[in-house]
Amino acid sequence: MAAGAASGGSARADTYKDARGWLLLPSWAVLGIFVLGPVCMMLIYSFLTKEFRGGVIWEFSLAAYDQFFFDRGLFGDEPPSIEWTYITIFWRSIWQAGAATLLSLLIGFPTAYFIATRPENVRPVWVFLITIPYWVNLLIRTVSMKFLLRDQGPLNDFLIGTGLIDSPIHIVNTNFAVQLGLFYSYLPFMVLPVYAAVERYNFSLSEAAADLYASKWTTLRRIVLPAVKPGVVAGCILVFVPSMGSFLAPDLLGGAKNFMIGSLIEEQFKGNAGNWPFGAAASMILLTMVLIILMFSARQQAKADKTEG
């Protein structure tokens, strides 16, 4: 985001040569207060000693990271071995978020393509329709989803009514319900960037491909997809990252039986355990992982740009 703002501003940079420094102050302040400040605080807290029942004692400690990576048994006095608990939780979150992202892509891409191929004057109406459900609070949407999906809910009633199934399918309190919930929560984050990319796509390229006897599938794969890839990548990141940290869908639709990263961290601050340094450490590890993913995708993008150029 910061990089985008800087490059957008550079065109006008000469005009404001002298003033440039302090004109950027607001953005630096925003970055400092809302990004750097909280992250630094989290980093510091993760290296402090936990206070019983929440809070921290200002003494340096590696206990939080130790707890994350080493298992010392139920009573904390066995020789350390690798702790799989939290790795399992992280892996589960990655898997759930990945499935939700894939689902969003499968549904979101055709939707975006559909909207982008409508006449220009009706496109805003379609985009508007996509965003309408998202005016409602996320909690309420997640609860409504639960009502729809449950054993005696409309979906199962409908399927039984049409004779497709005899007994209700259990969806609520399964991993699939969590994936559906995450997919539904973040779908517009996929549709909108993909739509923006497809809208800019020059459809005469597709016509040219057809003239050269490319099949529709080949055209999509070799011409359309490479052209809209930045939008797809942005959409995937925008869905994947918040899904990883989400706790509403896992708690409400998954039954809170298995921690995801989000609920694990929430529990450290709101729950009985009240272990702030550990919550901060888990957040830092999550942040590091997300940064690695983002840097990796940025490098891939840069590579792709280079080969194109």
């Binding site: 904390g76 939290y86 399992t88 921690f259 009985n272």
Partner: peptide, 17 residues
């Protein structure tokens, strides 16, 4: 007390992992 509570916290985490 704090020491005992730590074990109960661990059991709770084990339960929900």
């Amino acid at each position: 007390d704090q020491e005992t509570q730590a074990v109960y916290d661990q059991i709770w985490t084990n339960l929900k992992k």
